[in-house]
Structure formats: C-alpha cells, structure tokens
Design a binder for these strands. Structure first.
Lengths: 190, 190
DNA sequence: ACATAGCCGGGACAAATGTCCTTTTAATTC
DNA sequence: GAATTAAAAGGACATTTGTCCCGGCTATGT
C-alpha cells in the first residue's frame, strides 16, 4: 500500500556512493514539508531514500484526494519532467525524509548514460500507471465498505499511522462516511 | 478526450515504410474485436494507426469502467510488457482499426536501438499516468453533474458517437443516474 | 397491420453519502 | 482538579445514487 521501489533506490545509492556522478544531491524534509507543490513548475525529480510521504491532489472544491503513499525508492516529479507540465499534485512529508534530488537536465543525462536506469524508470512509471488505473476503477465501482476493507488490509502490515482524515482522503469520502463505514465493518466482523 | 499520439504513430509509420526493421506487423480489427483481454497474458504491444478503441476494466461485481478512449498513435499493452503482468483491462475496437503490432522482445530491441523512440514511449506513459491520476481525483471528488458536463465538453469536438452505456461506464455510474444527470443538465441550461 | 421482442426512459422506493450541528471524549493549561 | 479548548463521534436531515420495474417506442418478421 505504501509504494516502494527497492531496485530504484539501490541504483541511486550505488551511483551516489561510487562518486562517478556529481549530480545527485541529498536533501532532508521534515513532517509537513512539501517536496512538490501542485500548480508549481518542477525542474527536479526526487527519489526517496528513507521516510514516507503522501501524494495528493487538491481539487477546486477544496477537497483532497490522496493518490498514494510513497516510501523508499519511489520516484517523484518525473511526470512533470517528462511531460513538461506543472505539477498536478502535492507531495508532502509524513515522516522525516531523506531524498536524492536530480535536476531535469542531469536526469535526462543519467537516463542516457545508464541503460539499466532507463529500464528501471520505465518500469517504475508503468507500475504507477497500473496501480493508479486499477485503483480508480475499483474505487469507482465498489461501495465504501468494500474499499475501506481493502484499504485496511493494505495498511495492516505497515507500521504507518494514518490519520482518519488521510483515510477519508484516500477513499475520496468525507470523515462522516468513513466513521459510518468503520462502524459497519466492526459490527459485521463480530 | 480520445487520446491520440501523433509523434508515436509517425515514428512507427516511418520505421515501417523505411523497411529498416521487419518486426512491425500490421493488423486489422473490426468493431467489437478485442485487442487485449483482461486477465490474459499479453506478449505484444500495439500502436493504433487508424480507428478508435475503448479501454475498460471489468470489475468482479460485473460493472465496467472505461479508462479511456484511444485513437491514432496510442500505445496499448505496454504496461503488461514492462511490468510483466497479466492485462488489467480490456481493449475493444469501436470502429475498424488498423494497428502496428510488435512482439515484446522486438519492442525491447527497438527501444534499445532507437533513442528517440525510447523518449517518445516514456513520454507517452507519463502522459497516460498524468491523465489517469487527474481524472481519478476529479471524478472521485465531484458530483455526477459536474463530471458529465466535463465529459460532454470533451467529446463535443470529436465525431465519435458514444453510447449511453459507454458514457455511464466512463463516469462509473449507472444508466439511470446518467439519465437523471442529463435531464438536470439540460434543464439548467435553459 | 399485428404480434413479438428488445431497447429506452423514467417513476417509486431503498440505500448510500454528504452537510450541518450537537454531544462526547480526550488533552491542555492554569 | 477545574476550566478551557481541541479532536472525535455520531444524530438528524437533505441530497445523491442505485435497484427494481413498468409502460411506451421502435424494429422486425409474418
């Protein structure tokens, strides 16, 4: 449920420690900090080395929708770089985060010079697309109770403490509806 | 609204006519034919040369969700190839379609040998991800009337004749709800 | 023309979800 | 410990959406 990408972070760690390139910068973020701002122009990508962030869209009616929780190895900002568009979502640190930062031009250079990295990044985006598309249809076509149960199963193994507001935002519902669904689920599991 | 990708189809047309590669096969599909079957293993990608298809997920409760309508230049099956997983959605021809078909191993070879194609494909996936994610949050957080109005504006310019069932499946609602929303929208536009 | 079947729109009701606001609980300060 | 504030839970009602089903329209064959 918290997306991770071991091969990607390992690749960057190796690149960084090998000292063969000098375009990978390390950066630290604290809970609440924004790595990416919606509607802002981004000219860097990030790879999370440690920590957890939430990736969420703020709609024009004020409500938030959490696209995913991202952890170790997840790449951020690559969509903006590849499509040359403004960010369509925010990325905000939940825990303390250390991340690798690479500027757009350097990132393109890295992809050119490192065939394996190119493969890994393509795969990373493909996985994201797959997850996003599958969740969209599932969440759209199933009732809240069903989606909530799925969500709970997903975070059960994680040691992440998700706030109620975040659960509601992930499911795209109000807290009131979430409370009702939680009650339903516990009652039916007696 | 019907996704197209001119640069991708042009690239394939050039490759095909130049006769420098022999791994690009042309295939024809008729309305109703399936290019990709959900839950089946796919070992090819397609690039649509001409025609329109719908890409939809069938959920376990029997309902369908249309991810997108794809037209000229759209790539299909690449997610399955890159992530090495079963198809998570169906792709069905709406009009007659001609498409370029490339086997997985050949496709990887093409990407290796054609740097520009690699770029184009990465960009194509990035655009898909962006669109999918934006639509998911929008559709989840806005009422039907709002989403319907957006949808109508999108297909207004297209010469595509979308059935009511398809509109409902795209919006993730029942036909009954669609009819109500249609009535609302016309009444309010008086 | 008539009968039949199939599709389409909508009425009536049920279920799900959102909005608003009150109550309850927990936490904090003095 | 009492007072105050903030956070969580839920009641009451309105709105939205889904389910079920009926009646009408169209097409088709005989």
């Amino acid at each position: 449920m918290i997306r991770i990408n071991k091969e990607l972070v390992d690749y960057f760690k190796d690149l960084k420690t090998s000292n063969t390139v000098d375009c990978i910068h390390k950066e630290v973020f604290y809970p609440g900090d924004f790595l990416i701002h919606q509607h802002k122009k981004g000219n860097t990508i990030f790879i999370i080395e440690r920590g957890i962030a939430k990736c969420f869209v703020n709609e024009d009616n004020g409500r938030d929708f959490i696209q995913e929780f991202v952890g170790e190895g997840e790449i951020l900002g690559e969509i903006e770089v590849f499509t040359d568009t403004l960010s369509f979502s925010n990325v905000q640190a939940i825990t303390e985060i250390t991340a690798f930062k690479v500027y757009k031009s350097d990132f393109y250079k890295l992809l050119d010079e490192h065939h394996a990295l190119n493969q890994i990044v393509i795969r990373a985006i493909a996985v994201k697309l797959r997850n996003t598309a599958m969740r969209a249809s599932q969440q759209q076509l199933h009732p809240i109770d069903y989606n909530l149960k799925k969500f709970m199963a997903l975070i059960a193994n994680q040691q992440l403490n998700v706030s109620k507001q975040d659960i509601a935002d992930y499911l795209g519902i109000t807290i009131r509806s979430l409370n009702r669904a939680l009650k339903n689920n516990t009652e039916n599991n007696l």
